[in-house]
Design a protein around this nucleic acid. Structure first.
Lengths: 216, 216
DNA sequence: GCAGCCCGCTTGTGATCACAAACCCCACAT
DNA sequence: ATGTGGGGTTTGTGATCACAAGCGGGCTGC
């Protein structure tokens, strides 16, 4: 029997701690595109040696959250417009499916929670806080998709978010909006009505709206 | 100016060599599901120390090609039926999109090459060679999808293939078929006719056929 | 015969080090 | 002013080692 004396906190493995903290920072847009990182710098920052730093970086690079030049230099990805269009298309494909699978399981408590999160999104927008906006926006989507009971699909969607993190920050950083996202309200309305085609359209619109701002 | 004295062969980095060779073996179904691996064993096999072996394993684990138990033991993934269904659905979503994007760029030379590869698939089936079947089958799909000019989507599709590699081997290993895949011919016919709905249906059918064998 | 325990060996983890390559910056020349 | 060369310095890579945890096999006791 495993008594698990410290069940609350996470794994004590150093590389995993470094990985999770770096991943969160990247996904939330804490780092701008092309931002350089060093193994020794990461190690110093998180109080570990180069070895776990290297493993965390390697893992993030495998997920597309970091890029490594031919000489091994580490930086956050600076995406081309074509790459952004692709990633947006992937988001549309995967997240529409996730939303569709979540719809039959979406009960009232979930919908109310989504509304609460969406209020936080509105606050972040009002305060011009790009990182808070990205974080709460992703929390909105993840909360919905968790109901789909499709962990592999959710992992894929999060991988796409991760790749877009730095770019999203740059994108929303130069955007000056004042109103909360309109499509979130459409998503919530479609969930209430059990309207699957409407839900698919609303999710697709929400996911690709950022693209239009950039390319258009 | 970079003269690049040895442009033909690949990177000389040890961890990358180990990664690529392991990845190929896993994707082609060389290893059965749940097969255990050790860092020291991998290092000995490829003539490197534990360090590059660890990096290769970490990278493959990030892509879902290997799983690590809570105690760090390494093995190929043994997928549940739910997980298989999810991965098949992901293949359907992504690969249908890739085929659709490849369609307008598919000229005659590509179609003839697909027919040639499909002949190899038929040979592999006739010879009951599961690994050769998986390899040529994936080559068929990758050749088509390369025309889509969508590297991020292709990478996602390959990640799914990677996760299913060991399971596919177990699947086709117990399958006793004698005829070449019917849906490949439908794909080729749809490409010739420029029939996009037909192509989407054919790709979706081809991708999900294996699922029906397993679950049904 | 069988369940439970214990010890030894295998395994992953993280730190440290030597090394080679790339980068950066500044001086120098045009 | 601008391009070019060089050298110190930073950086990633891979090997090696100490260590702790876990798995497994064999023994003991019932």
């Amino acid at each position: 029997m495993n008594l698990s004396p410290r069940p609350s906190d996470a794994t004590m493995l150093a590389h995993d701690r470094v990985y999770r903290r770096l991943r969160t920072r990247i996904m939330h847009g804490d780092l701008p595109p092309g931002h350089p990182l060093t193994l020794r710098g990461i190690g110093t920052e998180y109080g570990v040696s180069m070895t776990p730093a290297r493993e965390a970086v390697r893992r993030l690079a495998a997920e597309g959250a970091l890029t490594m030049s031919t000489s091994g230099r580490i930086s956050t990805p600076a995406l081309s417009n074509d790459r952004i269009e692709e990633l947006a298309a992937l988001r549309a494909l995967i997240e529409v499916e996730l939303a569709s699978r979540a719809l039959p399981r979406a009960h009232l408590a979930l919908i109310e929670r989504l509304q609460s999160i969406n209020a936080s999104v509105g606050e972040a927008v009002a305060q011009r806080d790009a990182v808070a906006y990205i974080r709460t926006n992703l929390e909105f989507h993840r909360t919905l998709y968790l109901r789909a009971q499709a962990p592999a699909m959710l992992a894929m969607a999060e991988t796409v978010w991760l790749q877009m993190g730095p770019t999203m920050r740059a994108l929303y950083g130069r955007l000056r909006r004042t109103e909360a996202p309109q499509f979130h309200r459409l998503i919530i309305a479609a969930l209430r009505a059990g309207d699957e085609p409407g839900l698919r359209l609303a999710v697709r619109s929400d996911v690709t709206q950022g693209l239009r701002m950039l390319v258009g």
